[in-house]
Nucleic acid binder design. Structure first.
Lengths: 160, 160
DNA sequence: AAAATATAGACAGCTTGGTTGTCGATTGTC
DNA sequence: GACAATCGACAACCAAGCTGTCTATATTTT
């Protein structure tokens, strides 16, 4: 087996897509249609403290305008609520709604389920090793909630 | 360490992005600007026998219209040539040019280089194990040249 | 041979998720 | 009080997908 670097890249992407697609499909089946990974990660970031558009954009390595768009759709679906910020009149404070929390925990459960399936296939030990090594390779930080621009142009936006 | 399924997904995507971004950047530095992974995989597919738009679309799990767009940009850059098909007047036969071959082999070298760097970080044995396990999880097929839709809507297009 | 059907590629138009650039409103600092 | 920085909004654009429609050519069926 040749084991080229390109194969490795494809393998990683394939792995992600299998997980992401399965999760999206399952989420749709459980009553949350059109919920993409990006929505999930954005909500997680909001829940984790990125409670305004600019900050969310920063954490997701995306312009604030783009973040605002995501926020708008999340708001339309009732997953996040927008209110005024008592400390800064320019800001609009974001908050994950109860419905949003439901999606979040459902999504988490689904992902954990998928991971468990994988663990069953190759063994928990091997899966853990895979994760550990991948983490070493990707960087020390566990890539928290900042979704890395979603396979886009790679360069992080400057914005103003 | 919690090891949630979502973390795993992020890790996989992160890994892919690190490789893809590095490769894109390096390729740009060596004189092939704006060459994205999708171009590379499309060219590989063409070289591997997908010598018309419809077939390319099929292999990349993308509509033929979308494939046609990619082909158009590759042609503009002089990476593929379009000629008539002697056996079927509807078809336009695709061919990777010499310049295209250069990009291809350069890209391959870069990817292999990146893989070597990773091997140095966690050891060849571990990297091999990672690849093997990932392959088991993603599916038996090594995901050949069909780029899996590039983190899009997951559903494969029907088209006509 | 003719008719029905399938396929190749082109064109128009839409959607998603990004990007700049600009702007008014607000805040904080000198 | 003046001035720079920041927040969020708007407009315009782009890339890479999608669908739907169309013509020309092949292929298959009658």
């Amino acid at each position: 087996m040749s084991r080229s670097g390109a194969d490795l890249a494809l393998l990683l992407l394939g792995g992600f897509r299998v997980l992401a697609d399965s999760a999206t499909a399952e989420l749709a089946e459980r009553g949350y249609p059109d919920h993409r990974p990006v929505h999930d990660f954005a909500m997680r970031a909001i829940a984790a403290g990125a409670d305004n558009a600019s900050e969310l954009g920063r954490r997701m390595s995306v312009t604030k305008q783009s973040a605002a768009k995501t926020i708008a759709t999340l708001q339309e679906r009732g997953y996040v609520a927008i209110g005024p910020d008592p400390e800064d009149a320019r800001r609009k404070r974001l908050q994950v709604t109860d419905l949003g929390q439901q999606v979040l925990s459902t999504g988490e459960a689904i992902f954990d389920d998928l991971r468990a399936q994988w663990a069953q296939q190759i063994g928990e030990t091997n899966l853990r090793a895979l994760e550990t090594h991948l983490q070493t390779l990707v960087g020390t930080e566990p890539m928290r909630f900042d979704t890395p621009g979603w396979v886009s142009r790679g360069t992080t936006p400057a914005d103003g």
